[in-house]
Design a binder for these strands. Structure first.
Length: 571
RNA sequence: UAGGGCGUAGCCAAGCGGUAAGGCAGCGGCCUUUGGCGCCGUGAUCGAGGGUUCAAAUCCUUCCGCCCUAACCA
């Protein structure tokens, strides 16, 4: 069927926002926010939420806030606040001067709690955590089937307003030990939505907070904080992930029962999952604190910090996020899809360079001893403006070990005894002899070159089936290269094989370090973070561990490899 | 079990009653001084059944499957 292709369809959230705008809601404003808890580093899943909230505001001429949801001092830390700010900014989401902390609203929240008590809609409860759970009516298996009994009222539910006010005041004043009392909303203990069965608003925690210090010993829960914070900030559309859908009735109940200045609307969307990795902060904390990776910014991690160190650009992440769309159906995106966007972005912007990761020495027998020359190489065939550079050529070179086979199979176009190939931007060479050590390992190739093919073309028109990258041995820089693979060996670590845990599925070969790599001298002064395409090998970037006399590169992504694929098919 | 949500090709995703967009992956081919890039071609009757209608992926209905919650975490 014929359908206009140029009409980009809107996702369901943008459609709702557009409708609200059309109906003149919210004084025709659009205002979103992203509310992280500073209890870990953010990951690519968060990036989707950040970019969605930010871009919706952008597209509708609205504003975007960054608000830390810092209501649980037990897990939070300023280190995470700083890391999150850095990562959000790096992704390109600009909160301008609107950086907020839910902890700034603690006093207002307290006043609203008092209001609720006065209205007879909240009470101080002495039940323990376990008792609260029991009274709530937890699902139970009666031997035949699981049932969900209605909850029953707390015996403290009918305390007088005066008593509640007094108790709540003393809770704040520090009169009670941790866990002995809570403030709960008085809603409905038989409500089918468990969140509505008298949820806890405040718990007692004699713990100092990274921003409010020891000013408080009672801390508001997420549910009691979130919607009201949105209201205070004038948020019009509070976009969050699907697991909060169950909380929406409560979110709305608070707004309905409080004298809030504004009425925000919560809309939920599906979070992303990506194959061969895990996307939960809880798991990330275990990976980091359990030393299964080298920190939050380990290039194998799906954290923003890790991806940045890996060499992935914010543009690639944005393109990826835009590509997967916004829906309510939860799925698992293939890693190949992320890699596609990484390659597409890096292909256009990365200067090419030649580097040999697994060196095999080549001596050009007919090239004069002691002679050398400079050859011109194109910096980026995708970008004419990138210009050219010169690379040194000499009698002794290194080529990639995988580019030579003594007994090549059919369709192996590269170097083998007697065959001729092109050295990129240099000459045609022919392999004349194979030098081996006592164990029969190939340690050197003796080749001859054709002086007439300088630059890579033969005047007589003869063709060659392969072009190899290479470096001049006396001129090349030694480098360490870190090759990364999937962090996990199974696509979904959340459902590991029988008898295994998710940690058992970590890929033992996710990091491979090569110390004897050689790279052309043009990268000598590259800045940390510089990205390159090592021709025929992949995309790499200079790691912060790099020193002037010891270059360290991270492999961001491999190039697609038709030969590799053909081999795998042959196996 | 209760409440909430989801189900369109291997993956993501358009579609909103008029007879299945697009991307990724795969496969085949072209091009090529990166076996890269680029280009061309190639796949579905929409979880299942029933119903309404001239016409249904789109409406109704029953069923099935999967996910979320049942924390004084967010």
């Amino acid at each position: 069927m014929e359908r206009p292709n140029d009409v980009e369809s809107r996702d369901f959230i943008r459609r709702i926002v557009a409708e609200d705008l059309a109906e003149g809601k919210n004084e025709s404003r659009v205002h979103t926010r992203w509310p992280p808890e500073p209890s870990g580093y953010i990951h690519i899943g968060h990036a989707m939420s950040i970019l969605l909230n930010y871009s919706v505001a952008q597209e509708f001429g609205g504003q975007f806030n960054l608000r830390f949801d810092d209501t649980n001092p037990l897990a939070e830390d300023t280190e995470f606040v700083e890391a999150i700010k850095r990562d959000v900014a790096w992704l390109g989401a600009d909160w301008e001067d609107r950086l907020y902390f839910a902890s700034e609203y603690f006093e207002q929240l307290y006043q609203w709690a008092v209001h609720l008590i006065q209205e007879g809609k909240a009470y101080v409860c002495d039940l323990t955590a376990e008792q609260i759970s029991e009274y709530r009516g937890t699902a139970a298996f009666d031997g035949e089937r699981t049932t969900t009994p209605p909850g029953k009222n707390s015996p403290y539910r009918d305390r007088t307003v005066e008593e509640n006010l007094d108790l709540f005041h003393r809770m704040r004043a520090g009169g009670f030990p941790d866990g002995t009392k809570t403030l709960r909303a008085k809603i409905d203990m038989t409500h089918p939505n468990l969140n509505m069965r008298d949820p806890v608003l405040y718990r007692i925690l004699h713990v100092s907070h990274h921003r409010t210090g020891d000013a408080w010993c009672i801390y508001p829960t997420y549910d009691w904080t979130h919607g009201q914070s949105d209201a205070i900030e004038g948020i019009t559309h509070s976009l969050c992930t699907l697991e909060f859908e169950n909380h929406r009735p409560l979110y709305d109940w608070f707004l309905d029962n409080l004298p809030v200045p504004h009425r925000p609307r919560q809309i939920e969307f599906a979070a992303v999952g990506i194959g061969y990795t895990v996307m939960s902060k809880r798991y990330h904390r275990q990976l980091v604190f359990g030393n299964h990776v080298h920190g939050w910014d380990d290039p194998r991690m799906p954290t923003i910090a890790g991806m940045r160190r890996r060499g992935i650009t914010p543009e690639a992440i944005r393109a990826f996020v835009k590509g997967i769309g916004v829906t309510k159906s939860e799925g698992m995106i293939e890693m190949a899809y992320l890699e596609h966007h990484i390659r597409q972005d890096l292909n256009k912007r990365s200067p090419r360079v030649m580097a040999v990761l697994n060196p095999l020495k080549v001596v050009i027998a007919n090239y004069p001893q002691g002679q050398s020359e400079s050859l011109e190489a194109i910096n980026n065939p995708e970008d004419p403006l990138a210009g050219v550079r010169s690379v040194p050529f000499s009698r002794e070179l290194y080529i990639e070990r995988e580019d030579f086979m003594e007994n090549p199979p059919k369709k192996f176009y590269r170097l083998s005894p007697g065959s001729e190939v092109r050295l990129r931007y240099a000459y045609f060479i022919r392999c004349e002899d194979v030098v081996k050590d006592a164990d029969g390992n190939v340690i050197e190739l003796r080749c001859t070159y054709d002086p007439d093919t300088r630059g890579g073309d033969a005047p007589d028109g003869r063709k060659v089936k392969a072009t190899l990258h290479w470096v001049s041995a006396p001129d090349a820089l030694r480098a360490q290269v870190r090759l990364y693979d999937h962090l996990f060996s199974v696509e979904n670590p959340h459902s590991p094989p029988e008898g295994k845990t998710w940690l058992d599925t970590l890929n033992p070969e996710s990091l491979q370090i090569r110390n004897d790599c050689w790279i052309e001298p043009s990268v000598a002064d590259a800045a940390i973070g510089s990205r390159f395409q090592f021709e025929r090998m992949g995309y790499f970037c200079l790691d912060p561990d790099s020193k002037p006399d010891g270059l360290v590169f991270n492999r961001t992504a491999t190039l697609r490899d038709a030969w590799l694929k053909a081999q795998q098919k042959a196996d």
